[in-house]
Every structure is written in structure tokens, then in C-alpha cells.
């Protein structure tokens, strides 16, 4: 057969081998190690059944980190997509200085989390610019210890991530908006639709693909949260802002590898379930232009 001669499998092998050994195998191992007491202090590994998962469920700090992960994923997804959509609509209308605005809103996306973390540690310092600004404009009652107060810290970390990530989602929404033929909107205007009706009845349904990509990508990225927390609070105070990956990192440092892997597996299952659900939900809503 010509296929065999022309397209040999050994072109796939190098990529497949690297990927199998360093991504697929560790993923498969995690299914085994999650059910063991694997740790730094003993040479033998014993199967302990569901022990690790019982430990997770009965430990309030570990459960808090799972709740924080879900909260972060949901809050940042809403924030990035709502803001990103507003900016995309604004930047697709006939205004001046579009390029400058687009650059400013996208710029944080290309910064490292370490840079973002340091900048916001300074800004959100109790005597930092944010609290000073609030004091000056008469909103002193809003002043907080942004990264120290247990009730606020998770929202602060989410806010910083929204600042960094909105530009990315804005660009994808802009692509969706620009792909809609102009005469659709004009036809709606002639029929007497106002701007809001035009957006919700015409534009939004036609850009469902961009919406679904954005929501899936922001949820997946949100569940994988680690660096955001690591650079801003390192999970603190206490466990108030810890998330699944930061616990896995801490467990690794403590030599509790079985439990750490079990936490990572919980993350894996959460992400797989969420992306499967959102993808099938949006598949039904997409419209071809």
C-alpha cells in the first residue's frame, strides 16, 4: 500500500515516545500511587486502598483547598469572560486608539506570574497604593488586608488572575465578533433592534464557538491554578488560600508522595469531568455561520 511507503509510522515515534514516557506514564502511575502509602520515609510501598481519599475527605484543610480550587476556577472564569466580552465589544466598535487599548489590555498576559506576584504584593500591601487610593477617594471603609484576611484572600488571588488573563479571552471574543458578517447586524438595526437586542439575539448566538472555547479554556486553567497562589500567598494564611496543586507541591516537599498524588488525581478527575460536561453542553449550542 502506498500509505505505508509514503507515510511511515517512525515519523510519529519520537514525539509519541517522549509523550508516553513523560506524560502518559506518570498519569497512569498516579492511578496506582494514589492508593498507596508511598512516602519518603519507607522503602516499601503498600497498598492502602481508599485510605488517602478518606484522609482527604476527613481533613478540613484538604477539603478547603478543593473548595478553593473550584471557587477560583468559577470566579476567574466569570471575571475573565465577562470583562473580556465587554472589552471585545468595545474594541470592535468604531472608536479611536484601538491598537493602543488592545495592547494595554493584552500586555499582562505575556508577563510571568513571578512578575505579577511581586507587583501585586507591593500594590496590595496594607500601606500599598490600593489602600491609599481607597482612602483618598473616600472609600476608606473598603480598605482590607488583601493578602492576609482569610475571608478576602481567595478573592484577591482571583482578582489578580483576572487582571492577568482577561486580555487573552478578549482576543478570542474579538475573533468571534469579527467573524460575524456585518450585514447581519445592519439587518437587525433596520428591523428596529436596539444595541442590546442585537448583541443578545444576533451576535452572541453566532459567536457561541468563541464563548465555549473561552469558558472551557478558562475553567481548565482555573482548576490548574498553582503559580498564582504560590507567588502571592503560598497558600496562606494557614490553608486559607491553598489549592489542589499547592497542596500537592507541599506534600511533595514533606515526602508524603502517595497523598500528594491522590490530591493531583482529584484534580485530574475534576478537570476531566468539567471539560467533558462543558464541551457536550456547548456542542448543542453552536451555530454555523
Amino acid at each position: 500500500m502506498k500509505g505505508k511507503q509514503l507515510y511511515p509510522y517512525f515519523f510519529i515515534y519520537p514525539a509519541l515516545i517522549v509523550y508516553l514516557v513523560l506524560f502518559i506514564c506518570p498519569t497512569l502511575f498516579s492511578f496506582v500511587y494514589s492508593f498507596t502509602d508511598w512516602n519518603a520515609y519507607r522503602d516499601t510501598i503498600r497498598f492502602t486502598g481508599l485510605d488517602n481519599f478518606v484522609k482527604i475527605v476527613s481533613n478540613s484543610d484538604l477539603m478547603l483547598s478543593i473548595g478553593n480550587t473550584v471557587l477560583f476556577a468559577v470566579v476567574t472564569s466569570i471575571g475573565k469572560n465577562v470583562l473580556g466580552m465587554l472589552l471585545a465589544v468595545a474594541l470592535c466598535s468604531r472608536i479611536g486608539m484601538k491598537r493602543l487599548f488592545r495592547t494595554v489590555f493584552f500586555l499582562p498576559t505575556v508577563l510571568s506570574f513571578i512578575v505579577v506576584g511581586v507587583l501585586f504584593t507591593a500594590l496590595l500591601h496594607p500601606e500599598g497604593f490600593l489602600n491609599q487610593f481607597l482612602g483618598h477617594v473616600g472609600l476608606g471603609w473598603l480598605q482590607q488586608e488583601w493578602l492576609v484576611d482569610r475571608n478576602v484572600v481567595m478573592f484577591t488571588v482571583s482578582f489578580v488572575d483576572v487582571w492577568k488573563g482577561t486580555g487573552f479571552h478578549m482576543i478570542i471574543f474579538m475573533a468571534g465578533l469579527l467573524a460575524i458578517p456585518r450585514d447581519y447586524g445592519e439587518a437587525a438595526q433596520i428591523d428596529g433592534a436596539n444595541a442590546l437586542q442585537e448583541f443578545f439575539r444576533i451576535k452572541l448566538p453566532l459567536m457561541m464557538q468563541a464563548v465555549s472555547v473561552n469558558i472551557v479554556l478558562s475553567l481548565i486553567a482555573g482548576f490548574k491554578v498553582f503559580e498564582q497562589v504560590f507567588v502571592l500567598t503560598n497558600g496562606g494564611p494557614g490553608y486559607a488560600s491553598s489549592v489542589l496543586n499547592s497542596i500537592a507541591f507541599q506534600m511533595f516537599g514533606d515526602g508524603r508522595w502517595g497523598l500528594g498524588t491522590a490530591m493531583n488525581l482529584v484534580l485530574f478527575l475534576l478537570i476531566t469531568a468539567i471539560s467533558f460536561l462543558t464541551l457536550t453542553y456547548f456542542k448543542r449550542k453552536e451555530v454555523d455561520i
Binding site: 502511575f29 498516579s30 511533595f252 478537570i271
Partner: peptide, 22 residues
């Protein structure tokens, strides 16, 4: 093989087993 690669778009990296593999 293609399906396996695409699954990796979603799945998170398992840090501790990867360290052990390395």
C-alpha cells in the same frame, strides 16, 4: 496516537509521578 495527544490538552501534569519517572 492523535487521540492520545489531544487528551493531553486537558489533562493536568502529575507532578510527583513525573519526578519519580525522571
Amino acid at each position: 496516537a492523535y487521540f492520545l495527544f489531544i487528551a493531553g490538552l486537558v489533562a493536568p501534569l502529575m507532578y510527583i509521578p513525573t519526578i519519580k519517572t525522571l
